[in-house]
């Protein structure tokens, strides 16, 4: 049985312009200890997918309209809120983008990193803060134990993201969801943070969902990749297969616009023309149709479903790979 099994997850938002479906029937499995990267542009539904897994969609505008989230065999969508609170931060933890704003400016680091211990393990504040020092030391925050009483503004962006990781690790969760954990950081720090996250996850046997728009970064850290477009997964495969033989024209397009060091100089990057689809006014056919270089008449009629094209490699496209 997989650790996490998401089936037909659909999340909608009521807006002034009508109901938009931000996540549209997303399904995937995640084994214990596995790392899955969810890749997509802004508005592709990847962050909403993450928040839906935690049931943290802003209500009443947002709503998980359909689907199942089976975590260790238990449907999270059926749990009453207090039980869901016992899951959050304890069995599933989340790391947010923007480390500069994800820490409460008026509480010390020790209090914030120690909080999950108090919430879920019944630790006293003194113990939790002492343990926060150990955790911060584990994420290699310099001089960690002496600085548990410092406030977030006294740390750099990378250090804060380390603190966020420490918070997520506090209760040794089975699954950590990292929503663009490195977007706001310097490139040099990005690699350090991801390597650290991956290393600690491996030590604890924690599964990881890495949400990002950067296919380049994901290559080294993910076991599997799911590419999202217009609220749906359009292609999913083992990371190696996806990079070698992208099947969906969107994935191919994404890969073509990443600069690579191992290729001949002078090769031009190829952008994907056009804009991501308006979720409130989805075209009837394939969502990628208006931007697709290989679209045909069939693409206008219906949205393609995910189909297995090679073992473990799925895509949602009517066209054969080029």
């Amino acid at each position: 049985m997989p650790l996490l099994s998401v089936k037909g997850l659909t999340t909608t938002f009521r807006t002034d312009r009508g109901v938009l479906t931000a996540v549209d029937g997303v399904s995937f499995d995640l084994e214990a200890g596995e790392t899955l990267a969810i890749v997509g542009e802004s508005g592709s539904g990847k962050s909403v997918t993450a928040l839906s897994l935690m049931r943290l969609i802003a209500q009443p505008a947002g709503r998980i309209a359909a689907g199942e989230i089976l975590f260790e065999g238990q449907d999270l969508l059926k749990l009453p809120e207090p039980e869901m609170q016992a899951v959050r931060g304890n069995r599933i933890a989340m790391i947010f983008q923007e480390p500069m704003t994800s820490l409460n400016p008026s509480l010390t680091l020790g209090v914030q990193v120690g909080e999950p211990q108090v919430l879920h393990r019944g630790a006293t504040w003194d113990k939790a803060i002492a343990r926060a020092g150990d955790l911060l030391d584990r994420v290699r925050l310099p001089d960690a134990r002496a600085r548990v009483n410092a406030y977030p503004h006294q740390f750099s962006g990378g250090q804060r993201q380390r603190a966020m990781i420490a918070m997520a690790l506090a209760c040794q969760p089975k699954l950590i969801i990292a929503d663009e954990p490195t977007t706001a950081l310097d490139v040099t720090v990005q690699a350090q943070i991801l390597a650290l996250l991956k290393e600690l996850a491996r030590e604890q046997g924690t599964a990881l969902i890495l949400i990002t728009h950067d296919l380049g970064i994901v290559a080294r850290y993910a076991d599997r990749v799911a590419v999202m477009y217009g609220g749906r997964i359009v292609e999913t495969a083992a990371a190696r297969d996806l990079y070698r033989t992208p099947q969906h024209p969107y994935t191919a397009g994404l890969l073509a616009c990443i600069p690579r060091l191992d290729q001949v100089t002078g090769r031009r990057l190829i952008p994907i023309e056009g804009q991501p689809p308006d979720l409130a006014r989805m075209p009837p056919g394939c969502a990628f149709r208006p931007r697709c270089p290989r679209a045909s008449a069939a693409c206008d009629a219906a949205r393609p479903a995910l189909a297995e094209v090679a073992p473990g490699h799925w895509k949602a496209c009517f066209r054969d790979a080029a």
């Binding site: 959050r88 933890a93 994800s102 820490l103 999950p116």
Partner: peptide, 10 residues
């Protein structure tokens, strides 16, 4: 964001 983060901590 830190309010979401706190909620995500349970």
């Amino acid at each position: 964001m830190y309010i979401h983060a706190t909620q995500s901590m349970g």
